[in-house]
C-alpha cells in the first residue's frame, strides 16, 4: 500500500468519479459507445486504484460484497434476464421492451439492460477478485 497522502486524498475523489462514469457508460451502452463490459472495466480500475492507495482491506470494505458474490449475482441477473423472454412465450433471451413516457421524453426499459447489468457485475467481480487476491500478497 502506498502511504502517499496526495494519492489517497485524490483517490477518494477520483474513485467516485470513475464509478459514476462507469454507471454512465453502462446505462447508455445500448445506443452510444459503452455497455456492461466497458463500464465494468472502468469500475474495476477504480477499485484497483483504491486498493493501491488504501490497501486491499479498505478496498474490500468499500466493495461491501465479496467479489465472488458479485460474480454470482451477475450470472443470476444475466440468466434471469433471459427468462422474461421465455415467460412471454418467445425463445429464451429475447429482449422485451417497455416504453414509459415521462413528459415528452421517452424512457425505454428493456430486459437486455438487466442482462447488461449481469455482465457488468460478473466482470467487475472477476477482475476485482483477481486484483484483490494479487494485492493480498502484501509482503
Amino acid at each position: 500500500m502506498m502511504r502517499s497522502l496526495i494519492l489517497q486524498t485524490f483517490t477518494r475523489l477520483l474513485v467516485t468519479l470513475m464509478l459514476l462514469f462507469s454507471l454512465f457508460l453502462l446505462w447508455r451502452g445500448h445506443n452510444l459507445p459503452g455497455g456492461g463490459f466497458i463500464g465494468a472495466l472502468v469500475a474495476s480500475a477504480a477499485f484497483a486504484l483504491h486498493a493501491i492507495a488504501f490497501g486491499v482491506a479498505s478496498a474490500r470494505s468499500i466493495l461491501r460484497y465479496d467479489p465472488r458474490t458479485l460474480m454470482a449475482w451477475g450470472m443470476i441477473f444475466a440468466g434471469a434476464a433471459g427468462l422474461f423472454g421465455l415467460a412471454a412465450g418467445k425463445p429464451y433471451m429475447t429482449g422485451l421492451w417497455l416504453e414509459i413516457h415521462i413528459g415528452e421524453s421517452l424512457l425505454k426499459l428493456g430486459t437486455p439492460l438487466i442482462f447488461d447489468i449481469g455482465v457488468f457485475l460478473t466482470v467487475i467481480g472477476m477482475v476485482v477478485a483477481v486484483i484483490f487476491s494479487l494485492e493480498e500478497e502484501e509482503f
Binding site: 477520483l14 452510444l32 459507445p33 459503452g34
Partner: peptide
C-alpha cells in the same frame, strides 16, 4: 471524444 475522456481518466 467519449473514448478520449475515458482514456484521460484511465
Amino acid at each position: 471524444l467519449d473514448a478520449a475522456i475515458a482514456l484521460a481518466l484511465i
